[in-house]
Nucleic acid binder design. Structure first.
Lengths: 218, 218
DNA sequence: CGCAATATTGACCCGCGTCAATTGTCGTGG
DNA sequence: CCACGACAATTGACGCGGGTCAATATTGCG
């Protein structure tokens, strides 16, 4: 069933762990416990963030409480810049997560890198549209697992930081359907579930072919 | 039904109409007939584009031919920049369309504006995800009409440049469902169809409330 | 006017959402 | 170590929204 969603209270979190990092501009390293809000819809956009360890979900809500996760951010990935001055989405740590926080103003000046990041963000969102828009449940889950594997450097064993609910809200499905799709992939021996949140990709080719992405012309 | 899709041949078009424009860097004004390909998947990314008049659809294909429109670009809007060096999507003129073409290299240098445009593109894609992911057919069509109206400056009479098929592929529906949704909005007297492609918004409030977007906190 | 392309409408059916029950996982305390 | 409770995930039964297929209507163009 659709889960009606309430973001956990409070969007300002006390740094539990502060350190310096290697990029220019003022920045901090902050550790968020799982479920903590990094920023909320309506917060002003004045920082950007890079994940050191852990994972982040970024999502929007519609008025009846349905949630749509628009992206997951894994270790090494950057997020938090938006066109408007107020955030349109929520960002939360999925599990305990260490994050570098940059002040946005000093970053803004030398923007070629920031531009590249924005373009990557847009590409991800558009690819996601193809998946959500035109693929069935099993294909969506397959695409999700492939994407995660690719972003982690092509590993065959995935440890999922997020719950089935998070995956469902990302793929615009329900937990039940995600679960059934997982079971089907398992029965087809495309994947194996070593543990509920630990997936072994047994047949990467079969998984990839389920993703239906058009072959790029040379 | 799902339409299986073949992009019209040829991705290089002879300029039918060339002129100078007001931005820095080498650029041309080109007129594309309806259906002409501006760039195709796999083409190298070396220009960016601004619509003078007309409209453009940008879309992806999956291997079985299903199409997903990821965005429409209207007069005044800019498109064509991507993270990779090869285009991931196709862009086509919907009807006869006049476009300013910028060489990308000279643009690249002073990128703050380009960054802003990329951020707008990302925001659009993410908002679109919310619609596709979590709203039913009538709501999607309502959101589509509202969005178009807003981008045209809040007009109440819309002339749709795109076909039902384009709308369907944008909203991840079928033409039949788009048609039924239009009929329902018409029967509820939320809109009126002056002509198949000319929509009058009779009850803007009703239309907006169908879009279910969470109210932004102040 | 006639033909082709586009849009609408209707009947049917299937994938996925809904609701409900069951199983599995993990943390805490005896 | 097991008992217990809370939560997460799985599985089953069923219904509905929207896809499929087909017929009809409308629009645009020569």
């Amino acid at each position: 069933m659709y889960a009606t969603f309430k973001p956990a209270a409070q969007s300002v979190v006390m740094p539990e762990n502060v350190a310096r990092a290697q990029f220019p501009g003022a920045h901090l390293v902050v550790t968020y416990k799982g479920g903590r809000v990094i920023y909320a819809e309506g917060d002003s956009v004045d920082k950007c963030y890079q994940v050191c360890a852990g994972a982040v979900r970024e999502y929007g809500l519609i008025s009846d409480g349905r949630r749509q996760v628009v992206s997951f951010h894994l270790a090494g990935e950057t997020f938090g810049f938006e066109a408007a001055s107020k955030h349109r989405f929520f960002a939360e740590a999925i599990a305990e997560t260490r994050i570098i926080v940059f002040a946005r103003r000093p970053i803004q000046e030398h923007s070629p890198e920031l531009l590249a990041l924005a373009l990557v963000g847009m590409k991800r969102a558009q690819e996601h549209l193809l998946v959500i828009g035109r693929q069935c449940a099993v294909e969506r889950v397959a695409a999700f697992l492939m994407d995660l594997s690719d972003r982690l450097g092509g590993v065959r064993q995935l440890r999922l930081p997020m719950s089935r609910q998070d995956i469902a809200d990302y793929l615009a499905l329900t937990i039940e359907t995600v679960s059934r799709a997982m079971t089907e992939l398992k029965e087809r021996k495309v994947i194996a579930l070593r543990h509920v949140r630990t997936v072994d990709i047994i047949k990467p080719d079969a998984l990839r072919s389920l993703c239906h992405r058009a072959a790029l012309r040379s």
